[in-house]
Design a protein around this nucleic acid. Structure first.
Lengths: 199, 199
DNA sequence: CTGTCAATACCGACCGGTTGGTATGTTGCA
DNA sequence: TGCAACATACCAACCGGTCGGTATTGACAG
């Protein structure tokens, strides 16, 4: 009777992930119980622990999704070998638009990033540092070559960019007046106007 | 025997607050138990619940400390009635230096800000919005008067500033190479170079 | 086409431990 | 004597996680 078992076979895992994602974004990781996740996903605890070894795995999975896409895009941009301005614009555009496109996942991840330092997440945090270092190196090299002005240090510039993206979920509304592309454009303009200024 | 009861009367409450503050910053609010707080503070649960009605009150108290100081400083800066550049520089300087000076409190607050939407924190969130709106209005007026360039919207500029300050705790080290004043200066330079550019 | 069987997908009751919070002292000072 | 300032013992609720069981499926044999 009712739906067959395999009908949603591919969907159950994803439904659990989507439910966990939404709840983590709303209430935070610790404040969300496994029971709440399975209730929203329409399964039971047994079902969840059939697919995931621990509650933490749900977060790790989101990390991988979010960082994986950004990191892949970064590599794609860098291997084009274009000039610093184009490259930095492309990076800002990708990270803002990409973050906005996965708003709930990104919100949960950036909210809970600091709560975790277990062995399992070290690899993910290393990826994140690699991303930041790539941006800093880009700016540092361009400043050394005289293409960018030394109006601010590479660290401060990258923190400004990542500060906007990691707090994006607190003020960005998909149905708001600003498109993600426009935000990326404005941020790039602000940063690059400073960076291109001649003393 | 030993120390008298009233000797540390003023100190017990503060010790509890300091312990909670450190633990919230280290592990997060939900991951910290009341028992851990009282253990570190050297008191018992009875003592804590004598001074605070609930665990949440500890967080609310930190909110008040952090926001209160910033808000008071903002008013002091605004009432000087100086030009937009001086005012914006003063605001950036205060929020960066002030946040760095209360690193653990600020870390706990910005980390757990979104976890709370209960009635008790609405007043605090309103204060925070007032702060943001003041900055936006400053930029908006200066842009309308032609003093600042419209290189980016007031919203984006304020998000850049607050993005840096709310994520400050993830990369700022008091014993690191950068002083807080220097970070504030760099951030102000970056933002204002963009804002003062002539097209 | 049918019967067998192992594997997969999923259920729901249950466990030990921990949680925030409280009820009831006890102590020192005014 | 009274009252603020704590300590101690304790609780009901809930936590993440486990486990024995069952329904469903696909592969294979006859």
């Amino acid at each position: 009777m009712g739906r067959s078992r395999t009908e949603g076979a591919a969907g159950v895992r994803e439904r659990i992930l989507a439910a966990a994602c939404a709840l983590f974004a709303e209430q935070g990781y610790d404040a969300t119980s496994v029971q709440q996740v399975v209730d929203r996903a329409g399964v039971t605890k047994g079902g969840l622990y059939h697919y995931f070894g621990a509650k933490e795995d749900l977060l790790v999975e989101m990390y991988r999704t979010v960082f994986g896409e950004r990191l892949a895009a970064l590599d794609r941009i860098l291997e084009q070998g274009r000039d610093p301005e184009w490259t930095l614009r492309a990076i800002i555009d990708d990270i803002v638009v990409g973050t906005a496109a996965m708003m709930t996942e990104s919100a949960a991840v950036s909210r809970e990033l600091a709560h975790m330092d277990s062995a399992r997440t070290q690899r993910l945090q290393a990826d994140w540092r690699r991303y930041q270092e790539a941006v800093r190196a880009l700016i540092r090299d361009a400043q050394a070559a005289g293409v960018f002005a030394a109006v601010a240090s590479p660290e401060l510039v990258s923190w400004s960019i990542f500060g906007v993206t990691t707090t994006l979920h607190t003020w960005f509304r998909p149905d708001g007046p600003k498109r993600a592309e426009q935000i990326a454009h404005e941020l790039a303009d602000l940063v690059l106007t400073g960076l291109k200024s001649r003393p």
